[in-house]
Amino acid sequence: MGWYYLDRDHNLILKLYIQPGARQTEAIGVHGEELKIKLAAPPVDGKANCALAEFLAKRFNVPLKRITLKRGAQSRHKTVEIYQPINGPEVLLSEIRTK
């Protein structure tokens, strides 16, 4: 299994590795079985989780209420569910800069 899958209701489940406190928010690439995302927000008072939800809502073209943090509220390893996303997971990979 990779870093994403669709559940039986066709909701997108993402397995993410988060690096808070970065200069800018961006998807970096696949990190083992997770997609690595750098967040500009600090890991304080849920700010990084809020920034992640906003980043994903914008990329998948859904309102914030359709983004659910299923696992990892206090961890760098997170599982996120996106209810009926407009875009597929490739939208995150399309932003990754080639080095």
Rank of each mutant, 00 (worst) to 15 (best):
M1V: 05
W3K: 02
Y4L: 02
Y4I: 01
Y5P: 02
D7G: 05
D7C: 03
D9E: 06
H10I: 02
N11Y: 03
N11G: 05
L12C: 02
I13D: 07
K15V: 03
K15F: 08
L16T: 00
I18V: 05
I18Y: 00
Q19E: 14
Q19K: 12
P20F: 01
P20H: 01
G21Y: 01
G21I: 01
A22V: 00
T25G: 04
T25Y: 00
E26N: 04
A27D: 03
A27K: 01
I28V: 15
V30C: 04
V30Q: 07
H31W: 12
G32F: 01
G32L: 03
E34P: 04
E34C: 12
L35N: 04
L35A: 05
K36A: 12
K36F: 06
I37C: 02
K38P: 00
K38N: 02
K38S: 00
L39F: 02
L39Y: 02
P42E: 12
P42C: 05
P43L: 08
P43W: 04
D45V: 06
G46P: 14
G46A: 13
K47F: 14
K47T: 14
K47L: 15
A48V: 01
A48P: 11
N49I: 05
C50L: 15
C50K: 15
C50Y: 15
C50I: 15
C50P: 13
A51C: 15
A51E: 15
E54N: 14
E54V: 13
F55V: 08
F55P: 12
F55K: 07
A57G: 04
A57M: 06
R59D: 12
R59S: 13
F60C: 06
F60I: 04
F60T: 05
N61Y: 11
N61F: 13
L64G: 13
R66Y: 12
R66W: 10
I67L: 09
T68H: 14
L69C: 05
L69D: 09
R71I: 11
G72K: 06
G72M: 12
A73L: 11
Q74K: 10
Q74G: 10
S75W: 05
R76I: 09
R76L: 08
R76S: 11
H77T: 08
H77V: 09
V80K: 07
V80H: 09
V80A: 11
V80F: 09
V80M: 11
V80I: 13
E81R: 12
I82E: 08
I82D: 07
I82W: 09
Y83S: 10
Q84Y: 09
Q84E: 13
N87R: 09
G88E: 13
G88C: 11
P89W: 01
P89V: 03
P89I: 03
E90C: 05
V91L: 06
L92P: 13
L93C: 09
I96H: 09
R97C: 14
R97Y: 13
